[in-house]
C-alpha cells in the first residue's frame, strides 16, 4: 500500500494535434513510505505531475497508479495539501478536518477521536473552533495538513505547501514536517521550487527539465543523509551548514541553472 508509479506519462494541454506538450515520458516510481520531491523551473509541469496523481487531471498517454491501482478520479486515499491551503472558510478548523471523515461515514465518536488526535498532532488544539480567516497562514496550512493526515491516506501529495508562507514560518513548517515524517511516515510526493527544502525533506529529489518537462536526474538524498547522520540535528540551519548538504544543494542548483540558461528569450 502506498506506492506511486508513473509509467511513460505524457501530458498535452489543448487538442492532441496542436496542443502544448507539458510533460514528456515521465517515469518515476515512489516506494511505500518514501518521500520524493520534484524540483524544476517554473512551468516545467511538476505541479501537473502531482495533479495527475491526485486525479484532477488525466495523462494524455501512459499510466499513473497508486498502490497498484490506476488513478481515475480524486479520492481520500490520495490526500492533497494545496499551496493556497484551500480550506473552507465557512467551516471551523474542526469542521474542516472532520469533513473527510464524515464523507467516509465514520460514526461520530470515532470521528471525534481522530479529529482530536489530528489537532494534537499539528498543535491546533486551542484553535479547534476558530474560523480559517482568524488564523495566520502557517496555522491555516497546519489545518490543511491535519485535514490530509486525518484521512490516513495511502499517499500525501503536497503542492508547494509552504510557498505562500513567510520565510520564518516556512522553516518552522519544514521542521514540523520532518518531525511528522518520523512520527507517522507516509508516502509523500512533494512539489517545490525551493532546492534547500527539497534536499532537507526528501529521500530522493527528482530534477525536471523545462517544458516539455522530463525527469533529468534523480538524486538519492537518503543514503547521504544516513551516511552523514543529518538527523542528529534538530534545526534546519545546522543541517544546511553540512558539507554534504551544501554539495547536494549546489549540484541541484547547477542542474536547474542549466535549464534556465537554455531558455530562449
Amino acid at each position: 500500500m502506498g506506492s506511486i508509479l508513473f509509467q511513460n506519462v505524457d501530458k498535452v494541454f489543448g487538442p492532441a494535434s496542436s496542443g502544448v506538450k507539458a510533460l514528456d515520458n515521465i517515469n518515476l516510481e515512489i516506494a511505500e513510505k518514501e518521500f520524493v520531491a520534484i524540483v524544476g523551473p517554473s512551468g516545467c509541469g511538476k505541479t501537473t505531475c502531482l495533479r495527475m496523481v491526485a486525479g484532477f487531471e488525466a495523462p494524455s498517454a501512459g499510466l499513473i497508479s497508486v498502490s497498484g491501482k490506476k488513478v481515475t478520479e480524486p479520492g481520500p486515499d490520495r490526500a492533497v495539501v494545496f499551496q493556497q491551503f484551500a480550506l473552507f472558510p465557512w467551516k471551523t478548523v474542526r469542521e474542516n478536518i472532520e469533513l473527510g471523515l464524515r464523507n467516509k461515514n465514520l460514526p461520530a465518536g470515532e470521528r471525534n477521536t481522530l479529529v482530536e488526535s489530528a489537532l494534537k498532532l499539528m498543535n491546533l488544539e486551542t484553535h479547534a473552533d476558530a474560523f480559517p480567516h482568524q488564523l495566520s497562514g502557517g496555522m491555516q496550512q497546519r489545518v490543511a495538513i491535519a485535514r490530509a493526515y486525518v484521512l490516513d491516506p495511502d499517499v500525501l501529495l503536497m503542492d508547494e505547501p509552504f510557498g505562500a508562507l513567510d520565510a520564518q514560518t516556512r522553516v518552522v513548517m519544514q521542521e514540523e514536517l520532518v518531525r511528522l515524517a518520523r512520527v507517522n511516515p507516509r508516502t509523500v510526493l512533494f512539489i517545490t521550487h525551493a532546492v534547500e527544502e527539497a534536499v532537507y525533506l526528501a529521500d530522493r529529489v527528482a530534477i525536471m527539465t523545462r517544458r516539455p518537462g522530463r525527469i533529468k536526474e534523480i538524486l538519492d538524498v537518503r543514503s547521504i543523509r544516513q551516511a552523514e547522520n543529518w538527523d542528529r540535528f534538530q534545526k534546519i540551519e545546522d543541517v544546511m551548514d553540512l558539507e554534504s548538504f551544501v554539495h547536494l544543494r549546489t549540484h541541484i542548483w547547477k542542474s536547474l541553472r542549466e535549464e534556465k540558461g537554455s531558455q530562449s528569450i
Binding site: A54, G55, F56, E73, P74, A79, F82, L99, K104, R147
Partner: peptide, 8 residues
C-alpha cells in the same frame, strides 16, 4: 478540488 479529494 479539496472537497473532491476529501471524497465529498
Amino acid at each position: 478540488e479539496a472537497a473532491r479529494m476529501l471524497g465529498t
